[in-house]
């Protein structure tokens, strides 16, 4: 573990943030390593943006530590920001400046310049940089921030729900661009609501709920925590199914098929039971991130 901590780009340990009496972050702990895309998911108001703003040094932590490149995110924010690029969820741009001017300004503020990659990105996202920002739609404003971020040569990228205003085509371009960063060995923190996106791109995932990280790990690590949905038909009736441990939501369809979900750790026992009833057909659906997500959020008791 110690070893891992050492090469982590982002290291967050028991981070806390209070706004007055309200505890926005109670316990946030996770690491992000070079060459990985870390998915940061959670419902609205769980503390994703608060965590990110703390990492940016915009907010001051009330407790715990957070370091980027081994430096304190608040005290050393300026030197950290030299190697960091950020795209907020809601991009607000100065209405009387053009998109092109704003992109260049952001690059200059990051001590870089308008480069070949900038032009490539403008082309890729099909942005008209001559328009004043007040005429841009939400998606176009996001493109401005994305183009500036992607053409910055940073080591750590933070995207806070960056695709909420993009059309599917641009979403695809975004994903492709993130994958390129990953190949170059950059670290990416991606907060998102689009679970298919996270599932597709992220190596590891952290789930935050009410200011606490409730789960971190790779998707496959997490699968054991989830339930598999099974649809089957047997020769003999399976009356005891409902009473078995780890079996949930048993429904009998009109076509003779029964559907239920089963906890991964009870899988083999339940399969044995079904086999004893002479299986005619069986189909299993692997747990998706969405199931996982729902399981953490919809119920109050958590796991």
């Amino acid at each position: 573990m110690m070893n891992q901590n050492n090469n982590a780009i982002l290291h967050i340990d028991h981070l806390q943030k209070n706004f007055g009496k309200f505890q926005a972050l109670k316990n946030v702990t996770f690491d992000v390593y070079p060459g990985e895309v870390f998915g940061f998911i959670g419902p609205n108001g769980a503390g994703k943006s608060t965590t990110i703003r703390t990492l940016l040094g915009i907010l001051r932590a009330s407790g715990g530590t957070a370091t980027l490149f081994g430096k304190d995110v608040y005290k050393d924010s300026v030197s950290i920001h030299k190697r960091l690029a950020y795209v907020p969820g809601d991009v607000y741009l100065w209405p009387n400046l053009t998109g092109g001017e704003i992109i260049d300004l952001f690059l200059k503020l990051g001590n870089t310049k308008h480069n070949r990659k900038t032009d490539m990105m403008i082309k890729r996202f099909q942005l008209d940089p001559t328009k004043k920002a007040r005429t841009y739609s939400k998606g176009n404003r996001q493109k401005v921030a994305l183009i500036a971020a992607f053409s910055t040569d940073a080591d750590f990228y933070i995207f806070d729900e960056p695709t909420s205003g993009l059309d599917p085509l641009n979403e695809e371009i975004f994903q492709q661009s993130v994958m390129e960063l990953k190949k170059e060995g950059k670290a990416v923190l991606l907060s998102s609501h689009i679970l298919s996106e996270v599932e597709k791109m992220c190596d590891r995932i952290g789930i935050i709920r009410s200011g606490e990280i409730v789960e971190t790990g790779s998707l496959s690590d997490m699968r054991h925590l989830t339930r598999t949905v099974i649809e089957f038909q047997t020769m003999q009736p399976t009356t005891e199914l409902q009473t078995l441990q780890g079996v949930h939501n048993v429904t009998v369809g009109t076509n003779g098929l029964t559907t239920f979900s089963v906890d991964s750790d009870q899988m083999s026992y339940v399969m044995g039971y079904l086999a004893s009833k002479q299986i005619v057909s069986l189909q299993s659906t692997p747990p998706t991130l969405e199931d996982l997500f729902m399981r953490y959020y919809s119920s109050n008791e958590g796991r």
Binding site: G57, I58, V78, Y86, L109, G110
Partner: peptide
């Protein structure tokens, strides 16, 4: 919200 991106710069 105009300054948020500036705050993320060095």
């Amino acid at each position: 919200g105009y300054l948020e991106l500036i705050h993320s710069k060095p």
